[in-house]
């Protein structure tokens, strides 16, 4: 069980996400492949889109921001914490407390109902059952799924499942929300609903990083980054 204080999840926080000369190279034969060139940036509150073609380094950037992968050099700071200086368990706790994730595929736990999926991060944080039930129901209601709380992911449409994933990402009230092609697998209408749900936390002052290859989706963001051949540039 995680040692994260339950109350820590319930306080709206606004913490700055920064990269400092963040880079990633992979060994390849005798040489190295540069997946991400040194990149320093402060993510402003609101939604930042990261666009670029396939293989440009978008996912590498998100993996490093999330602490899924270890940088070759540089740092990712959330507030005063360099997340890569933390232990594996420490990084897990940090993600639980400060991050929310929305993936291209909803990635819900197949054996848990919609409500149980949303409750899961709170369970990890040790929030009492009654409180986490109430918070999960409230979040599911906010994403328009109050009538689907007990459905398994297999009984939900792709759009509904992605809305559950957004509720799960937001239930811990994270400062940073990382979304990787969240509308990639959805039809236009469902995609619009998901984007609307993602812009809400951005408007509330959270840092939302949205990775997409769709220019129309990227246009909804407040700030824009473009990645090409591992080089990240800020677009005005």
């Amino acid at each position: 069980m995680s040692a994260v204080s339950p109350s820590a999840l319930l306080v709206t926080s606004s913490i700055q996400l920064q990269t400092e000369a963040l880079s990633r190279t992979y060994p390849s034969g005798d040489g190295q492949i540069t997946a991400l060139r040194p990149f320093s940036h402060t993510f402003a509150a609101g939604m930042t889109s990261v666009v670029g073609p396939s293989g440009s380094g978008k996912s590498t950037l998100l993996n490093l921001l999330a602490g899924f992968d270890t940088p070759s050099s540089g740092a990712v700071r959330v507030g005063d914490t360099d997340i890569h200086s933390l232990s594996e368990a420490g990084r897990a706790d940090f993600r639980l407390k400060h991050y929310g994730f929305v993936f291209q595929s909803h990635n819900l736990v197949a054996i848990l109902s919609a409500q149980e999926n949303v409750e899961f991060p709170l369970m990890l944080a040790g929030v009492p059952p009654r409180e986490r039930r109430e918070r999960a129901r409230a979040l599911l209601s906010q994403v328009g799924l109050e009538g689907r709380t007990h459905h398994l992911p297999s009984h939900l449409s792709g759009g509904e499942a992605q809305r559950v994933a957004i509720a799960r990402a937001l239930v811990g009230n994270p400062a940073v929300l990382l979304a990787d092609e969240p509308t990639g697998n959805l039809d236009t209408r469902s995609g619009e609903i998901i984007l609307e749900l993602l812009t809400r936390p951005a408007r509330e002052g959270k840092t939302v990083v949205l990775i997409t290859h769709d220019a129309d989706v990227a246009a909804l963001a407040d700030h824009h980054l473009r990645v090409r051949d591992g080089e990240v540039t800020v677009e005005r």
Binding site: S2, E88, A89, A92, N107, P121, L124, A125, R168
Partner: peptide
């Protein structure tokens, strides 16, 4: 595998 990866991503420790 994917499910365990998701659990770890959203904050479950390796010990969990």
């Amino acid at each position: 595998t994917r499910e365990f990866g998701t659990l770890r991503a959203i904050g479950a420790r390796p010990g969990f």
